[in-house]
């Protein structure tokens, strides 16, 4: 019974060591497969704890299964219709089938070399199937950039997946440019277009200004016409109201007319008048004839 602890401890240590020889983990971020004497026996699809025969009977091969980004070089190619275009493509890929990957490329570096030539190939082939107007177009509906990228992705997938065990998750055109010589032409066109636009702006500004002023003038005319119309109505109303009072004059119309005439006479003769009168008109007749009261009784 002496020193039972020590053997137990030793046992535990041996157990752990032997476990380390036969057990292995596949992490969430990895894919792995086991070879027995160089021959593939099984693939670990899911992460977790696995067992194997110790080295050198069985060997574990692990690959990082996370996404890698690969950027191809910027390259000039020609579209359908032989228009030069410069594009740069990237691909996001990961190891999907570790066995094929192990057999065909083996390392990430090798895989990228394969991707490089494949992307170049895909790019040239797909771009040459599309016209330049499908990349950039005044008519938005004719722009087929998404379609072009989808075509490229399909093309690249087909060539990478089965053969190399690489899954291409996505692909995109990250640069769309034109060559240096063409850029000079584009600048000339941009300048011309802009100058035309400048002139159009000046003209339309002037036209708009003129329109504003004339619009205001016509509104003014309308308003004044409306005001004059209303003024006339007010005057008419005044005349009508005055007529109410003139009705009272109906009691003695002749007398009323006489009064009106007197008034008119006063107003008319007020200024700048030269008057020529015969002497027999009253009251100048008094100048020659003395009145005779006897004649007055009638």
């Amino acid at each position: 019974m002496k020193n039972v602890g020590i053997p137990i401890l030793v046992l535990i240590i041996i157990l752990i060591l032997s476990l380390m020889l036969v057990a292995f983990q596949v992490r969430e971020t990895e894919v792995a497969f086991v070879t027995r004497l160089g021959k593939h026996v099984r693939t670990m699809e899911d992460p977790g704890l696995y067992f194997k025969w110790p080295m050198p009977i069985e060997k574990v091969h692990k690959y990082d299964a996370r996404l890698h980004v690969y950027e191809a070089d910027m390259g000039e190619t020609t579209t359908k219709g032989a228009v030069p275009i410069i594009i740069k493509t990237y691909a996001v890929w990961k190891v999907a089938d570790p066995v094929s990957f192990y057999r065909s490329v083996g390392t990430v570096l090798q895989a990228e070399a394969k991707l490089y030539s494949q992307i170049q190939d895909t790019q040239n082939r797909i771009v040459s199937q599309h016209t330049f107007s499908e990349f950039v177009n005044s008519d938005k509906s004719k722009i087929a950039l998404a379609q072009i990228q989808a075509d490229m992705l399909a093309d690249l997938k087909s060539s990478m997946e089965t053969e190399y065990g690489i899954e291409v998750r996505t692909l995109g055109i990250k640069r769309l440019q034109i060559n240096e010589k063409v850029s000079a032409n584009v600048f000339n066109r941009m300048k011309t277009a802009r100058n035309r636009k400048t002139e159009a702006t000046i003209t339309s500004g002037q036209a708009e200004a003129t329109k504003i002023v004339t619009d205001a003038a016509s509104i003014r005319k309308e308003l004044l016409a409306a005001a004059n119309g209303r003024a006339m109505a007010i005057r008419g109303q005044g005349d009508a109201e005055a007529a109410q009072f003139y009705k009272m004059l109906d009691a003695e119309p002749k007398f009323a007319i006489f009064l009106k005439n007197l008034e008119a006479l006063k107003v008319m003769m007020q200024q700048r008048t030269t008057l020529v009168l015969p002497m027999d008109a009253a009251p100048f007749d008094l100048l020659v004839n003395a009145p005779d009261p006897n004649d007055w009784s009638e």
Binding site: L223, L224, A226, A227, N228, R230, A231, M232, A233, I234, R235, Q237, G238, D239, E241, A242, A243, Q244, F245, Y246, M248, L249, E252, F255, A256, L259, K260
Partner: peptide, 27 residues
């Protein structure tokens, strides 16, 4: 201006009515 035109008309109306009233009164 529109207001001036209307004011002129209103003034006319007042004058004419007042004139007529005065005439009738005098008569």
């Amino acid at each position: 201006n529109a207001q001036e035109i209307l004011a002129g008309a209103n003034a006319y109306r007042t004058t004419v009515v007042a004139g007529a009233e005065a005439t009738a009164d005098y008569f």
